[in-house]
C-alpha cells in the first residue's frame, strides 16, 4: 500500500481508533463520517473512539494461497471478529496453532508487522489478534 495511504490510517491501524455516533452512541470501526442508523442527525457528531481491542471470533479461515505481499507467511489465520464494542472487523489471528482457532474464541489485539513493501519500501504495521489470556488484568 502506498505510503501516504498507509500513513493516513495509522491511528486506526495502530490503535483501533474508530468513531462513536454522538446521537445513538453506537461505535464503528473503521471510522464513519455518518452513522447508518442516525444518518443526518449524526452529521458533525461522530467522535473518535478507540476500541479496547477485545473481541470474539465470529468466523475464521486459514489462508493457504496468499496474495503477493503475504507470500512466505502462509498458512495464516484470518477471522471475522465481533469487538466488545459491538462492531465487527477482519484481522489475522496469530500465535496459535491452526487447530486452536474456533468460533467463540476470545481474542485481543496485538501489534504486528502487516507487510513490507519489498526490501526497499516501507514496513507497514498494524493490528492483528491473539488468543486472550484470561488471567489478564483489565
Amino acid at each position: 500500500m502506498a505510503v501516504p495511504r498507509y500513513w493516513r490510517e495509522i491511528p486506526q491501524r495502530y490503535n483501533l481508533v474508530g468513531t462513536k455516533c454522538g446521537s445513538c452512541g453506537k461505535i464503528y470501526f473503521p471510522p464513519k463520517v455518518v452513522c447508518p442508523t442516525c444518518r443526518r442527525k449524526s452529521l458533525g457528531h461522530m467522535e473518535d473512539c478507540a476500541l479496547a481491542g477485545r473481541g470474539t471470533v465470529e468466523s475464521y479461515t486459514i489462508i493457504y494461497a496468499p496474495p503477493p505481499h503475504f507470500e512466505g507467511e502462509e498458512p495464516y489465520t484470518m477471522a471475522l471478529i465481533k469487538m466488545d464494542e459491538g462492531c465487527y472487523l477482519m484481522g489475522q489471528v496469530v500465535d496459535l496453532e491452526p487447530q486452536e482457532i474456533h468460533i467463540g474464541l476470545r481474542v485481543e489485539a496485538c501489534f504486528r508487522r502487516i507487510y513490507e513493501d519489498g526490501t526497499r519500501g516501507a514496513i507497514q504495521y498494524g493490528y492483528k489478534f491473539k488468543k486472550m489470556e484470561e488471567a489478564e488484568t483489565p
Binding site: 500500500m1 495511504r5 490510517e9 473503521p30 465470529e58 468466523s59 475464521y60 479461515t61 489462508i63 494461497a65 496468499p66 496474495p67 505481499h69 503475504f70 507467511e73 495464516y76 484470518m78 477471522a79 471475522l80 472487523l89 477482519m90 484481522g91 489475522q92 468460533i103 502487516i114 507487510y115 507497514q124 498494524g126 492483528k128
Partner: peptide, 23 residues
C-alpha cells in the same frame, strides 16, 4: 483498506461465510 490490507483474499472471504454457514 480493511480487508485485503490485512491479508484477506477472495476465497478467504467466502471461506469465512462458509465456516459461518457450517457453524
Amino acid at each position: 483498506e480493511w480487508e485485503a490490507f490485512f491479508g484477506a483474499t477472495f476465497p478467504g472471504l467466502y471461506a469465512l461465510m462458509a465456516r459461518y454457514h457450517m457453524h
